[in-house]
Design a protein around this nucleic acid. Structure first.
Lengths: 152, 152
DNA sequence: AAGTATTAGGTGTATATACATATATTTGTA
DNA sequence: TACAAATATATGTATATACACCTAATACTT
């Protein structure tokens, strides 16, 4: 669907402005797809992101700050997301012995299990829904990274 | 910045998967840029979106449903966003005479004023920060629309 | 070593998303 | 016409974002 139709609006100031809005809309669209699957596992997008980050280092633990620095949305309130994951017993929280300010987080076996199941479903959905071929995906990645070139 | 650096992660399952994440991250990045400017005007991203939609039809009024259908994030809770805009006197809310179920919204002169000021600032920021040329922006638009091809 | 600055994480608040449900009004139909 | 179904919006709840501020622990400075 063209962005004009999605937003019922025909006017954009420039292709560059349209590209920004298109990117925002596409991200919303992808998130909706994701959430539809994650919901069946009792996960939110952000909780899923934290679990994936933890699996990346497993069996090592990670402190809250390390997790936060790997989050997509850099303002995520990681302690609160971890609250929910602890409640569901998908991660464990404990205080670091070396630096008592630090909270260290470990993903549990149950957490690894739900992550694997959810990931399998998401991968399937994405493979069947996202229609870019490899070359187009590479092009898109390059353009997005160019767009963000003046990143602080 | 490459996505790998932004997320401190080197592993993606495929260029397609990376493209999805890249899109989510870029959207977050664009939103942050936007919010930085909007904040100085006491506006949020969504409030700004509603004001722009209203200006598009001004001096006509719009009902809540019409506004909602033009929002980027289709699950936006438009009545609540309008609450905040009414409180700041940037829009007026009244009941439709024809269909008393409908609430019709009009942007005020103050609303148009703040919108113009904010838009001027945003356009400047974007023109100076987003580095794609016209051809690249068009390419990006095409790829994003292709990505969403299987849109319901 | 004492006192200050910095750092890590937790907590509070306003606004938003996502979604379920409630209420008022209108439409359609027997 | 009366009543059921549909529609428009508002409201409630859990979770998230964005950001300010608080507390405890560590590091730095003199």
């Amino acid at each position: 669907m063209k962005l004009e139709d999605a937003l019922k609006s025909g006017k954009f100031r420039s292709p560059q402005q349209k590209a920004s809005l298109n990117c925002l809309y596409t991200a919303w669209w992808i998130k909706s797809l994701l959430s539809k699957v994650l919901k069946t596992f009792g996960l939110t997008h952000e909780q899923y992101n934290v679990l994936r980050i933890l699996r990346g280092k497993h069996p090592e633990q990670m402190c809250v700050r390390d997790i936060a620095s790997r989050m997509m949305e850099k303002n995520s309130n990681v302690p609160r997301i971890i609250d929910r994951l602890v409640a569901k017993k998908w991660v464990k929280r404990s205080t670091s012995a070396i630096d008592k300010r630090e909270t260290v987080i470990t993903i549990t076996a149950a957490g690894l299990g739900i992550l694997e199941d959810a990931t399998k479903n998401i991968d399937q959905l994405f493979d069947s829904t996202l229609t870019l071929n490899e070359e187009e995906a590479n092009q898109l990645n390059n353009l997005l990274e160019k767009l963000r070139e003046k990143e602080e």
